[in-house]
Design a protein around this nucleic acid. Structure first.
Lengths: 189, 189
DNA sequence: TGGACTGCTTGATATAAATCAAGAATTCAG
DNA sequence: CTGAATTCTTGATTTATATCAAGCAGTCCA
C-alpha cells in the first residue's frame, strides 16, 4: 500500500481494489511556504490531501486576519462549499511551510462515485466525523473561557504549538495573541 | 405531493418515485411540550422531521444548561453521531412546544441507500449545506462581539424571537440572559 | 554582521460581558 | 381569577479579555 492509500484507508473503509482506484486519481504537487492554495472569492476546483507540511485557512476581515483552521499532515483540505456548489470561496488557504499535497481535481472528484459505488456512503461517514468535531468546537465557544479553550486545544494538539506561529492558534481559538501569551505563561509554570 | 414529500423535496433532489419511497418510511408521531426526544447518554436510533413545533438541543454542564441549537418547523433533528456510529448521545433534545414529527427508525434509515441509490449522494450534499452553516457559526464566535452575533442572528431568524424563551437564544449565541436582554433593549430602540 | 522583519511578551488601561441581587412582567395551573 | 412559577429586565459590581504601547528575541537575508 502506498503512503496515500494508507492515509485514505484510515478515513474510508474501502477494499484494496477501490482504494487503488481512488488513490490513482490524486496527483502529487508542492506548495512553497507562503503560496496560496486558494483565495477568497476564487473557485475551488480541487480537493487535496496533505502529505507533509501545513496550511492555514483564514479570512481577511476589517484589516485583520481571522484564522479559521490549520490543516496539517494527514488531513484533507478544500473549500467544500465552493467545490460542491461552485460558489466563490469563503476562505484563503495559504501554506505555512513547504507542503506536499496529493490533489484531485473537481472532474475526477465527481467521478469517484461512479467508479466506486460505496464512495458516497463512505464520504458521508467521513463528513459525520467532521460534524462531531465542529459541534465540539461550537460547544467550546458556548461553554468555555479562553483559558479552558486553550487547555482543551493544547491537550489535543500539543505538536502544533511548536510548529506554527502562535498568533494563528490564538485566532482560531477566538482570542488575541496577548491573551494567548498570558494564558500560555500560566500553563507553562 | 404530501406535506412531508414537499419538505423532503426542498432538501433533496429526488424524482417523484424515489421521493415517495423515502417519505413512506417516515411515520407521524407527537411530542408534548417538555417531553424528551433524546437524553444525553442514550442511544439515538431515529431521525425526525419537524412538521410543526420546535425542539431544543442542550447539555447540562456544571449545573447550567447550554443550549446548542433550536430546531424548528421544516428542519430535521437527530443526534447524528449517535445515530451513525451507535455511540452515546451527547445532547438532550426536548420539545419546547407540542410538536408533530415524522420519524424514521435507524433500520429504515440505513435501508434508504439500498432503496434509492442516489440517496447517499443527496444526503452528502445536504450535509455540505449544514457544514457551511456550522462554519458560519464558528466564524461568528471568532470575529464578532455579542452584539454583532445578536444582530446577525436576529436578521436571519426573526420569527424565533417571539416563539421561544429568549434565555435559550442567549445561550446558543454564547451570552448570558442579562447581556441578551440589554442588547435587545438597545436593538429595539 | 548588522539592520529589518516577524513573532512573542509584558505592563497599563479600557471595555465587554459575567455575576449578583432584586424586582417586574408573563405564563400557567388549580 | 388568583397565587405560584417562570421569564425578563435593570442596576451595581466584578472579572475576563481586548486594546494600546513598548520592548525583546529570533531569523532572514543582503
Amino acid at each position: 500500500m502506498t503512503e496515500l492509500e494508507q492515509y485514505i484507508n484510515s478515513y474510508f473503509g474501502l477494499n484494496a481494489e477501490d482504494l487503488a482506484i481512488v488513490a490513482s486519481l490524486f496527483k502529487p504537487s508542492v506548495l512553497l511556504k507562503g503560496d496560496y492554495y486558494l483565495k477568497t472569492g476564487g473557485y475551488c476546483n480541487k480537493l487535496s490531501f496533505i502529505s507533509s507540511g501545513m496550511l492555514r485557512v483564514f479570512v481577511l476581515q476589517d484589516g485583520k486576519e481571522i484564522t479559521q483552521w490549520i490543516s496539517t499532515t494527514g488531513y484533507f483540505v478544500t473549500d467544500l462549499a465552493s467545490l460542491t456548489f461552485e460558489v466563490p470561496a469563503r476562505w484563503n488557504i495559504q501554506a505555512l511551510s513547504d507542503t506536499q499535497l496529493f490533489t484531485i481535481d473537481k472532474e475526477d472528484y465527481n467521478r469517484i462515485g461512479d467508479l466506486v459505488p460505496k464512495w458516497h456512503k463512505m464520504e458521508k461517514l467521513f463528513m459525520t466525523k467532521c460534524f462531531t468535531i465542529m459541534e465540539d468546537r461550537i460547544f467550546a465557544f458556548l461553554s468555555m473561557t479562553a483559558e479552558q479553550r486553550y487547555d482543551f486545544f493544547f491537550e489535543h494538539n500539543r505538536e502544533l504549538f511548536n510548529q506554527v506561529p502562535l498568533q494563528y492558534i490564538a485566532s482560531m481559538l477566538g482570542m488575541t495573541p496577548e491573551t494567548f501569551s498570558r494564558i500560555r505563561r500560566k500553563a507553562l509554570s
